[in-house]
Design a protein around this nucleic acid. Structure first.
Lengths: 155, 155
DNA sequence: TTGTTCTTGACAAGAATTGTCAACATAATC
DNA sequence: GATTATGTTGACAATTCTTGTCAAGAACAA
């Protein structure tokens, strides 16, 4: 339960962009196709842009597209961007681990590091090309999305 | 960075109890030997007790000890007790996953589930007997702990 | 009865998360 | 140039989680 909503939303947006090879997608479209509040994507997309992962164009016919091949964007890159270190605990990060008076001979830390490495290995081994290749359902067929906004037919 | 302090503290306390095969350890001793604030252990230990992992005795000569063999207490059990589900995200828990309109054909969720399973596999494969067998430093030799409380010799 | 120890519940301070909004900048089109 | 469509930015409120602390109470032994 440690992947934040923003991380979730960012990966969703990138998966849709990976599936939409060509033209730019507007923020509104992107929000609709990923079932993400547009107001949150407003925050998420600029972060992806600053990181060089997506590119944007303004004005009519503007929108977002990938800034590099989907095969070159790993899940690790994106999760790191929004989550920071992937270690489950501060004493087990690879860079600048949090000091702990019990770290010497600590076998608990060994396990935390194994979890960290397994996580990195999995996230680092998956690109958005991989994710796009096997995606289905509403990902490839937007009409399968309920798109139930404010008020359903009730009254 | 998803393992909470309380989880950290609980596992530390259990590791020390596993190393101290025999007599009960008082809360104060346990706090000292694990470098954990006693006031927090006051909250953590009863949780371990209610879960049947440790046993307690009150009065003088009281304290805590393991309620079962260290080889029968897995890290998974303890982490679950304090963290809840081990999945990185709500849609990927094994029981009652959080519903998501994008779950059909979602390859992202596949990866989250792989991370969940790898985490469970690692945590489930380690017992406190394993952890105790290889521990060293201040874990086996408490005198190596700085135990620097309020005011060091400075004046 | 006294002293030691665990037990419980309430709590405050702080941090992180989540979602929203308004004002602004840029680009195309009329 | 005016207008419209779009991304950009920063501030923000509400909520929830985390962390540590404390005081009063219950059990046990001497």
């Amino acid at each position: 339960m440690w992947v934040s909503r923003r991380t979730d939303y960012a990966t969703r947006a990138l998966l849709v962009l990976s599936l939409e090879g060509g033209g730019p997608l507007k923020l509104e479209e992107l929000a609709g196709r990923t079932a993400v509040p547009q107001s949150v994507l407003e925050q998420v997309m600029p972060t992806l842009r600053t990181a060089g992962i997506v590119r944007s164009e303004r004005g009519p016919a503007g929108g977002y597209r990938l800034n590099k091949a989907a095969a070159e964007i790993t899940l690790e890159r994106v999760v790191r961007l929004f989550q920071g270190p992937l270690a489950p605990i501060g004493c087990a990060t690879r860079h600048n681990p949090e000091p702990c008076p019990m770290s010497l001979g600590c076998t608990l830390r060994d396990v935390w590091e194994e979890i960290r490495d397994a996580t990195i290995s999995l996230l680092g081994g998956v690109t958005f090309a991989d994710l796009a290749a096997r995606a289905g359902g509403p990902w490839t067929n937007p009409s399968l999305l309920a798109t139930a906004p404010a008020e359903p037919a009730a009254g």
